[in-house]
C-alpha cells in the first residue's frame, strides 16, 4: 500500500477549477518532485496535502490513516492528528520575525505539543548544529540571509518529527548563490530517509533529489517516472515540450 494516496481530489476556487479528480500515489521512501507549467496546481497540491485548502471532493490517506475527506461547501473532514505528522516549508520562509531563531524552533513544540522548554531547546540546538547554524541560535530572522532563513524554516518544521515534508518552491525567492546551501540541506534530509514532496523549478536539483518526478499539467498527472527516465527519455509529447522549454531557458 502506498504511503500517500491521493484519490479523486477535487479543488476549485470559486468557478476556477484546479483539480477535477486528481490521483497520485507515493511510497514511504519516495521523494516526489512535482514539475509543470506555472498555474498547473503544483503548489495547490502541496497546500491541499498540508490541509491548508478546503477540498471539494476526493480523499487523501497518509500511512495507515484517513487524512482528508473532501466535501463541497466547506464540509471537508480533516484529521488533525495526521496533519501534525506533515511538515511544510514555504517559498517566503514565514519565520516569525518577533522571535529569535531558537524561539521560532521551540514555539510549536512547547506551545502546541507540550514538550518541556529545556528539552525543545536541546533538540533545537542539535538541529541548528546539524545545519551549521548553531552560531545563529539567538539571531532574529531579520539578521539572517535568505538561505539561512530558509534552513531555519526547515529546522523549524523538523522540530515536530514529521513523517512527510512538503517543500513549496523553497529556493525560488533566494539569490542564486544562496540556493545551494538550502538544496544541500534538503539533500541531507533525503539521505536520512525523509519522505518528501517538492515543488521546484530547478530541474537540475529535481534530477538529483527525486526518486520519482511527476510532470503535471492542467490539474492532471501527465507522466510520472524516475528522474533519469523522465528527463532522459520522456514518453509524452507534452513532457518533452515542457522540458525543452525550461531546459532551454535554463541552459
Amino acid at each position: 500500500m502506498a504511503f500517500v494516496e491521493i484519490d479523486g481530489l477535487i479543488k476549485r476556487y470559486g468557478t476556477l477549477s484546479i483539480f477535477e479528480g486528481f490521483d497520485l500515489n507515493m511510497g514511504s521512501t519516495d521523494r516526489l518532485v512535482l514539475i509543470g507549467p506555472s498555474g498547473c496546481g503544483k503548489s495547490t497540491l502541496l497546500r491541499c496535502m498540508m490541509g491548508l485548502e478546503d477540498i471539494a471532493g476526493g480523499t487523501i490517506r497518509l500511512g495507515d490513516d484517513d487524512y482528508i475527506d473532501g466535501a463541497p461547501n466547506g464540509k471537508m473532514k480533516l484529521n488533525r492528528q495526521v496533519q501534525k505528522e506533515v511538515g511544510m516549508v514555504f517559498q517566503h520562509y514565514t519565520l516569525f520575525p518577533h522571535l529569535s531563531v531558537l524561539g521560532n524552533l521551540c514555539l510549536a513544540p512547547v506551545r502546541s505539543r507540550g514538550i518541556k522548554k529545556s528539552e525543545a531547546r536541546d533538540k533545537a540546538l542539535g538541529l541548528l548544529e546539524r545545519f551549521g547554524l548553531a552560531d545563529r541560535a539567538n539571531f532574529y530572522p531579520s539578521q539572517l540571509s535568505g538561505g539561512q532563513k530558509q534552513r531555519v524554516a526547515i529546522a523549524r518544521a523538523l522540530m515536530l518529527d514529521p513523517k512527510l515534508m512538503l517543500f513549496d518552491e523553497v529556493t525560488s525567492a533566494l539569490d542564486p548563490e544562496l540556493v545551494v546551501e538550502v538544496e544541500n540541506t534538503m539533500m541531507e534530509l533525503a539521505e536520512a530517509g525523509m519522505p518528501m514532496m517538492i515543488v521546484t523549478h530547478d530541474m537540475h536539483f529535481a534530477r538529483n533529489i527525486a526518486t520519482q518526478v511527476v510532470f503535471q499539467e492542467r490539474g492532471k498527472v501527465i507522466e510520472a517516472a524516475p528522474p533519469k527516465d523522465l528527463f532522459g527519455n520522456p514518453q509524452q509529447d507534452r513532457t518533452r515540450d515542457f522540458l525543452r522549454n525550461v531546459l532551454h531557458i535554463e541552459g
Binding site: G51, L52, K84, G87, L107, A108, S112, A157, L160
Partner: peptide, 13 residues
C-alpha cells in the same frame, strides 16, 4: 501577512 496563518497551521498551532 496571511502566510503566517498558513505557517502556524503547518506547525500545528
Amino acid at each position: 501577512p496571511h502566510a503566517h496563518t498558513d505557517a502556524s497551521t503547518a506547525l500545528g498551532l
